Amino acid sequence: MRIVFMGSAGLAVPALRAVMRNGADEVVGVVSQPDRPAGRKRVLTPCPLKAFAEGEGFEVMTPEKIGDPDSVAALAALKPDLFIVVAYGQYIPQRVIGLAPFEAINVHPSLLPKYRGSAPIQWAILNGDAETGVSIIYLAKKMDAGDILRQETYPLGSDETSATLHDKLSVLGAELLLKAIDDIRNGTVVRTAQDESLAVEIRKLSKDDGKIDWSRSAEAIRNRIRAFDPWPGSFCTLPNGEVLKIWKAELEEGAGNPGQLLDDRL
Rank of each mutant, 00 (worst) to 15 (best):
S110N: 10
P14R: 01
L16R: 00
L99P: 00
E250G: 08
G128S: 02
A130P: 04
E250H: 09
I148N: 03
G259T: 15
L99Y: 03
K207H: 12
A76F: 02
N106M: 02
R150I: 05
D264V: 12
V189E: 04
A87C: 12
S162I: 07
I184S: 03
M61Q: 12
V72L: 10
A249D: 07
D68Y: 08
P120F: 00
Q260C: 13
A180E: 02
T45A: 05
H108D: 12
L126C: 09
V86Y: 00
V107G: 02
D159Y: 07
A76W: 00
Q194P: 01
T45H: 04
V171C: 05
R17G: 14
G187I: 06
G39W: 07
T164S: 15
A174Y: 02
G133M: 00
F5H: 00
G133C: 00
S135R: 05
A227F: 06
D229C: 09
V96Q: 04
S8H: 10
R116F: 05
G146L: 01
I137T: 05
R185L: 04
I3N: 06
G55R: 03
D264R: 14
T188C: 03
P14W: 01
A140H: 03
V200A: 08
S234I: 06
R95F: 08
M143H: 11
G146E: 00
Q194S: 03
P101Q: 14
M1W: 06
N106E: 03
P69I: 07
R40Y: 09
L244A: 14
A130D: 15
E152R: 05
G57W: 06
E160W: 07
R40I: 11
R116K: 13
L11H: 14
Q260V: 12
D35K: 02
Q260H: 13
S215W: 13
M61G: 08
N223C: 12
S118R: 12
L82V: 14
P46E: 12
Q33L: 14
F52R: 00
S197W: 02
K179Y: 05
R42Y: 12
A73C: 09
S158L: 13
S162E: 13
E103H: 15
D209N: 15
H166G: 07
A193Y: 05
G210A: 07
V86M: 03
E253M: 11
I121H: 01
I121L: 02
A124I: 02
S71N: 01
G187P: 07
K142F: 07
G89N: 08
G254V: 09
L126E: 08
D229M: 09
T188I: 05
E196A: 11
Y91W: 13
V243Y: 09
E64D: 15
C47N: 15
L172N: 03
E26S: 15
P46T: 07
W123S: 04
V171N: 03
D264E: 15
L266C: 11
G256C: 09
C47I: 11
L139N: 02
W214E: 12
N257C: 09
L78S: 12
V30D: 04
I136P: 00
I92W: 11
V107I: 10
I92E: 12
